[in-house]
Design a protein around this nucleic acid. Sequence first.
DNA 1: AAGCCTAATATTGTCAACAATCCTAAAGTA
DNA 2: TACTTTAGGATTGTTGACAATATTAGGCTT
Lengths: 226, 226
Amino acid sequence: MTDSTSQTYTRADEAFDCLQTAIVKGDLAPGDKIGELDLCSRFELTRGPLREALGRLESRGLLVRRPHAGVKVVSLSASELVELYRIREVMEGLAARQAAERMTDQEIADLQATLDAHETMIDEAQGQAYYQAEGDYDFHHRIATGSRNIKLAQMLLGDLYYMVRMYRYRLSTSAGRPHRALGEHRRIVEAIAQRDGELAEFLMKRHINAARKNIEKKIQEGVLTI
Amino acid sequence: MTDSTSQTYTRADEAFDCLQTAIVKGDLAPGDKIGELDLCSRFELTRGPLREALGRLESRGLLVRRPHAGVKVVSLSASELVELYRIREVMEGLAARQAAERMTDQEIADLQATLDAHETMIDEAQGQAYYQAEGDYDFHHRIATGSRNIKLAQMLLGDLYYMVRMYRYRLSTSAGRPHRALGEHRRIVEAIAQRDGELAEFLMKRHINAARKNIEKKIQEGVLTI
DNA sequence: AAGCCTAATATTGTCAACAATCCTAAAGTA
DNA sequence: TACTTTAGGATTGTTGACAATATTAGGCTT
């Protein structure tokens, strides 16, 4: 995600990627207070580039920083996580609509192919939340890109998805949901293939709404403690 | 917007604010290629904090950076600017809906008061685009904050608005539009006061849609060259 | 015993020198 | 004349040392 056109890969870019994946994968858990020197030794970096990366991550909302006090990984409250899905609902709805208008036929064919791949993945790795989540991410990623709305894709891929993925491992396995989600994905792609932007937007919004309700239910059940 | 809770104000924060306002005010115009040393001498900074600020601004999409080549202010194409308004449409629609559900009565009263102030401002500074734009910004700012959706407010106030404001001085004066916009604002606030979130969302979306069409028209007329 | 103040420590913020890379301009060749 | 190549210069990337600040632990007071 760090500007694929850049030919050279600076240490700051490296630091940024390391930290971002560490946060997303859970190696750095929400709420962790982390020292710069720890990070330096862990990732074999020096403080200059590291600090630049910290600045970027703070700006994206993955870290919070207090001058002279330190850096800690952002920790969303339950309500904040839910609010994230409300934002996704409208933004990805727009993405789906624009994707329906602008994706190439080839891209749509590829998208359908990935759905087939997801299906076998779900059947094989039954209940393996990780791969399900990756498949889901792939789907949303392609649509965001397919919207041809650069800023929209940037905001989704660079901000929201990383925050959502931070929490995915906690709230993934909901019996039967993967198959239902896949069905919803199929319908969305169908609408896109028919170039029906309005329908694609509607279906995408409903899809994310369902995911949100699923999370809200878990929170109420106390399954998900944040 | 740089974390109001921070007690101490670091040089990097200073650099960030300086650059951001310079970009928004047009002192650094879109497309300008800027050297780090120039910036250092201009803002009385040293390179360390400056680079950290550059990282943050790049992450927010106000700057583009190419390793070893330099930094330049982002320059939106006409279509990218229009796309920005499509994003605003759905995000601010959501903000208006949530604001209708969550703003305090006091906040709503204040909002109505600012609209009155805007009205006199428009009458007095007739055609003074700058103040009109500031009033408009204030209105949208309050609603974003009133949504109580932290991330949504962050994205609107920290990303989108700055990019829009970069271009406001070019596309501001459209005879009669200020009054019409004010009327639209009033209706939105009315819906919020009645706690009608659905209507508030609808009206806000239409409001931004109108602004987008206004810009598209100007682009087609060739008035606005980007 | 509990709370406040003080000082030591560790961590962050800042700086200036060094190394690596890109851009430019001049020279040479087709 | 126009294009390629190469060397120089300028700019960015990186590093490690230095300064400033928040935290924490310990002692003191109430």
